[in-house]
Design a protein around this nucleic acid. Structure first.
Lengths: 349, 349
DNA sequence: CGGAGTTGAAGATACGCATTATCAATCCGG
DNA sequence: CCGGATTGATAATGCGTATCTTCAACTCCG
């Protein structure tokens, strides 16, 4: 490490203007009260010196003196900027950038976090977390212990895309999948569907459980009967469809729906005329047999904006008062009817 | 701003372990020399206390004490994470993230920088630039005055994608377009082409000038005659092609090439059988009439890796020695032959 | 014209860490 | 057993900024 070049300090400005460092600080921060007073003449002199030396405040010193930094951390449990993760992270990061831009915040990406058994970990001896005023956490799989530690340390943070399930109250912003899933199912039932299949990935994430729960609830209530099928049995779908008499297949996400469509058409099953298809996730840009896939529109940019809004609230609120805040926000995904659910007017009931 | 919660300090560890703060610092940094010595017994006691209190160093204090931060800044003159800019910035950011991950650096995005007449500006009174050990600059249009100030302040930075033209020696990593452009043109000439059109966007960026320069050189040398056409005259291309007898059209980039292809086929000109087509930019994912567009592969990820490598070199080298360093690196874009340049065996010469 | 109040500004200090200088205790050789 | 070298560790200091406290000089009023 080469010696970092020295920069202009308040002391130098003070010398040039013939005042004390204190006065320079006061002028810089436009402070003026009964305690400290600087007449316009002196103020102007100091300002001139500041301009002349092109002063820029040292953020580290400001931070150490207890001020905020206008920096928020962005932590992702996997690489965020790789092409593969762009599908998921892209809209979120875009939303974060826009919101940060508006509020005047810089973004610190914790790319240095050491990778331990597959995921990054936020805490390590030299984590730059404390350089930030608050932090946003992204990722499908978060580590509970780290969330709890953040809560315990009263560090302002917001988890994006996660519905909490630990004991500690984790502030989060997430998508409500239950409401649109129920709506989509009820509409399908109203369209005459009576038996369906739910193809899932068998993952145990909060959102996966939400969707699955809504599906099972519909099945239990008798609104629409479901058979749950793991993704490894996609090849078996044509047979299962005929065996159960299902007229609708709902997949956990759009990519899975495309795989399903491929398997079906490969076996001579017409989609959607013979078997309707829908996905319980973002369907923008996904088409099946030239038709717009039925599913949801997930407001990811809005999600990010909401997260930064909540984060700002936490940062500006004394931790003592956090208990009274509403720190769990849900955004309802919008149902996209698409063209891949056809009504069953044949009424085989 | 709510009061930031206090964290564990070296002093507290010192009290718990019954030593001085100095000793804690020494143990933490594994320092041991003739000046300072800590026997293994004490060292172990301190380490235990550190573990017990889950100490994490305060980055601001470390910085203020003159150490490096393991943070590098990423500055883009426009929004970097928007869908529109992903084409250009995506591979670069991905490369930066990967390189940073390897070296153990965090990334600070200067999203807060105020927008002045269209572009962000790096310097302002509260810029967090000095929090970083060095900085990477991205963007097509950089502001010369800011580059010069960075040079003057001896701040370690690397401009990506820009070939320098200011007086000051700006460290940069960029793509060499001249070599592959010349290669592509010479190959086309060898394939029998004698007259061509060059469709450009009329921009005055360094890379645009590079490409144009290579085209004009070929024309001047008589290797391949070119007519230069601005993008606003795309609709006129069919006529121009016939009027000049051109058998090849080269566009400045792949998107422009697609527009050209559209205009030609709309006018009944067969591409590439009647008129060959190529682009002087990245062609991955671009197809014309079902064929792979001829053009370049631009090693953007490698560009980013190279940039961080150079940046690391600058950071670890004393500014006094910078003059002796090779701070201008060029990566040659690779020619992608594609299928849209057909040989003219009719030999109309 | 003398004390209370006001104005203008500097001094001292804290923030958390690294480093330099310093010092007491112990060891060793003669 | 005495003086220099070594060992083990601490006090002091600086980094740049903000803030709290202090203080001198001046103003005003009776």
């Amino acid at each position: 490490m080469s010696p970092r070049p020295r920069r202009v300090t308040q002391r130098e400005i003070a010398e040039l203007a013939g005042v004390s460092q204190t006065t320079v600080s006061v002028v810089l921060n436009d402070r003026d009260g009964s305690n400290v007073r600087v007449p316009e003449a002196t103020r102007a002199r100091v300002k001139a010196a500041i301009e002349q030396l092109t002063y820029v405040a040292d953020p580290a010193a400001r931070r150490l003196a207890g001020l905020d930094n206008q920096i928020i951390g962005v932590f992702t449990y996997e690489a965020a900027l790789s092409p593969e993760s762009m599908d998921f992270y892209g809209p979120l990061l875009n939303g974060i950038e826009r919101a940060a831009e508006q509020i005047g915040w810089d973004l610190l990406f914790f790319t240095s976090s050491p990778v331990e058994n597959g995921t990054r970990s936020l805490f390590h001896r030299k984590t730059r977390l404390r350089l930030t005023d608050g932090c946003v956490l992204l990722g499908q799989q978060m580590v509970a212990s780290e969330l709890e530690r953040l809560v315990a340390e009263q560090f302002p943070f917001v988890a994006i895309g996660r519905r909490d399930e630990t004991a500690a109250a984790v502030p989060y912003v997430a998508i409500d999948y239950v409401t649109p899933t129920t709506a989509l199912i009820d509409q399908a039932a109203a369209d005459g569907h009576q038996q369906a299949l739910y193809v899932h990935r068998g993952r145990d994430t909060p959102t996966a459980r939400d969707r699955r729960g809504a599906v099972e609830a519909a099945s239990a209530d008798g609104r629409l009967a479901f058979l749950l099928v793991g993704e490894e049995r996609i090849a078996d779908l044509p047979r299962l469809t005929r065996a159960t008499g299902a007229t609708l297949i709902i997949a956990e996400d759009a990519f899975l729906a495309e795989d399903v469509a491929h398997a079906l058409s490969g076996a001579g099953v017409a989609v959607p005329d013979e078997t309707s298809l829908a996905a319980l996730g973002e369907v923008r840009g996904h088409r099946v047999e030239g038709r717009a896939l039925a599913g949801f529109h997930v407001p990811r940019q809005q999600l990010a904006a909401e997260a930064l809004d909540l984060l700002q609230l936490l940062i500006t609120t004394d931790p003592q008062e956090w208990a009274g805040l509403d720190t769990e926000r849900l955004l309802v995904a919008e149902v996209e009817p698409g063209d891949t659910i056809v009504a069953r007017t044949d009424a085989s009931s």
